[in-house]
Design a protein around this nucleic acid. Structure first.
Lengths: 206, 206, 206, 206
DNA sequence: AATGAATGAGGTTTCATTCAT
DNA sequence: GATGAATGAAACCTCATTCAT
């Protein structure tokens, strides 16, 4: 029974935690991190204000947690999407498409990750790079692979290009998030991918 | 004498205003908009707290002013830089270089424009688009021109590509701003430009 | 237990609220509304500054609440005092006496209601008339009754006279509140009542 | 020439002072003393903010000055109005009528004297009584005279009755000031006077 | 004498966090 | 574990007053 209880309690705690995180994503996306009140998150999550602090150290900690957990999730989603693709061109295309697809499916999360996380330099300096690095590495690895095959120009720096591609997609995502979200991002993703792929391909090969 | 006085007074007021704007840019860049206290700006500008409110309606108004005035300035700088260039490829190269050059010369301003302005969706929706539009139009016009000449693929949407290029440069700029700023951005700018130019050129022409 | 708890909690909240209102009456009477600081009220009520805002929307709201609640209470007191009296002369005498008796028993409240509520025309226009009307109606009804009996001159307007009587009592009350409060108001009340009663009685009847 | 200059300068100063006082009466009446800004008064008077302080020690001092000077003026007006009347009844009638006539002719002044002056207990305790005393004495003297003639009941205290009459008129004036001021006060004044006169007259004499 | 730009003290209010129940 | 009432620090902004010109 102890075991069952533990499981149940564990489930209960995990569910509560998840409810708070999900509520926070919505509230942060709606109001912005600074304007969002902890009590808003609490009531959206259906818990008392004080309960938040049984699961998180502080309001900041909730934001950090969102970033840490959701980036890990995004990395897994992206790895799964990239798994079936072999050629670097296809992998780059899939990366673009999947990235904007995730944004489209999770607009609130995208809004928080893109807009709210940039609030504070300190925050950006301390928490973002580590996790973002792993995500960017997914692009970087594609580029390095292409260069090894001699199919991507040797004169471009993968570190720069991966950041550029991410920035291009991120900007387009932000625009979409801030807009009325009426258009679809899939075509956009494809066009951006094509420009980058053509731009990276060794000359004369296309 | 009245005229001289007016000029002097005008100078004085303009100088004060500028001092406050400059101080605000530094403080916002250091601490972030929300964490920055009006009294920090005041003391950085060498004025009393209340003096701020002789020049600006509110703390928000300072941020809006920075955006409005500095974006106008950036547009002028960019126009001047683009003026001598005729070919779209060169113009795109100059746009990238100049953009990151301005960032490099005004890191605090860049930090504020890139990071702090994204604070609130409302802010982004109301103030950013108008001014940013004009800046993005500079890129868009280059692309449209290249398409008219039949030198840029017809199958890319200038509205998407200009946003992608801006996002690529912006992300790189942000990374630089948040980093220790030890490296120079000029090579980076060039590489990004080359990828985009090659990517946009009609096939077989490179 | 839930019920008991509710009662207890209700009591607790009601007591807190009452403590704040009572403290506010004292502080407003001592210092005046504008000079009174919310933190003065808080410390007089034995609560933290922020606690005030769990019970009232704003400092203004406290003043409005005092007026609304205390006027209702005064009306009840007055109705109870008038209940046993049948003749309009006796009723007018009781009204005067009771009004100044309430002032004498609640000098701080009287001070707030009489002095502080007149702070702003807007305030007077919006909140005072409704409640004050009901109080003045108590006098008006007495006068109308006396006129119906043919015992009060038909040539006086009850609306004017009730206002005049209220003003006479109010001015005497204010004077007493602002003075050292060493004398008693009961004789004064009686004299004012006699002048009005004689003045209202149809000629030759006294 | 020196004399002329002095006169001119004296006139100029007096005019400026008067302009400031008049402006202050309007602004205080419109906005209330606390909400009125010194700079509002200055611009209404057509002078610079700092100029106010060449004529008055402080914002409070302006209010005190209004009270002191205007009450003296009112006393003179009232004395002039009472001069032709001999009988106490007529004098009381004239007092009521003139008092409300002055209110009607100077609503802003009336508003300030009646509403704004009562803001602070300290103010009321320190400045009001002295000047108000002289005004109330005008009524008191009428009553004492009537009692000496054996025409006013000996059992009423002039000190109480004068305060009651003043309060009655004051309340009616305030009501009028706060209302839309569409009705005229002259009938009201007469009715109040009649009630008091009848009420004071020794019985059986009416 | 007049100006008006500058000052800076001061107060209301919010809200993240705590802790007794 | 959960609650939510209470806390109290912190900051924007106003405006009476000053003083260099």
């Amino acid at each position: 029974m102890g075991e069952m209880m533990d499981v149940e309690v564990g489930d209960h705690k995990a569910m509560r935690r998840r409810a708070i995180v999900d509520a926070a994503i919505e509230i942060f996306a709606e109001r912005g991190f600074h304007s969002a009140r902890v009590s808003d998150i609490a009531s959206a999550a259906g818990v008392a204000d004080g309960t938040i602090y049984l699961y998180f150290r502080s309001k900041d900690d909730i934001l950090i947690t969102i970033f840490e957990e959701k980036m890990a999730e995004m990395i897994r989603w992206m790895q799964d999407a990239l798994a079936p693709c072999n050629h670097w061109e296809e992998r780059l295309r899939v990366f673009s498409t999947k990235h904007l697809d995730v944004v489209e499916q999770n607009p609130s999360l995208a809004s928080v990750l893109q807009v709210e996380l940039r609030l504070s330099n300190k925050f950006m300096k301390e928490y973002v790079p580590r996790r973002l690095q792993a995500y960017l590495d997914l692009v970087g690895d594609i580029l390095i692979e292409g260069q090894k095959l001699g199919q991507i120009r040797a004169d471009v720096n993968p570190v720069i290009v991966r950041r550029a591609l991410f920035g291009a997609l991120d900007e387009i995502a932000m625009q979409w998030v801030l807009s009325d979200r009426r258009y679809t991002l899939v075509d956009t993703a494809r066009q951006v991918a094509e420009v980058f792929i053509s731009g990276l391909r060794v000359e004369g090969r296309g």
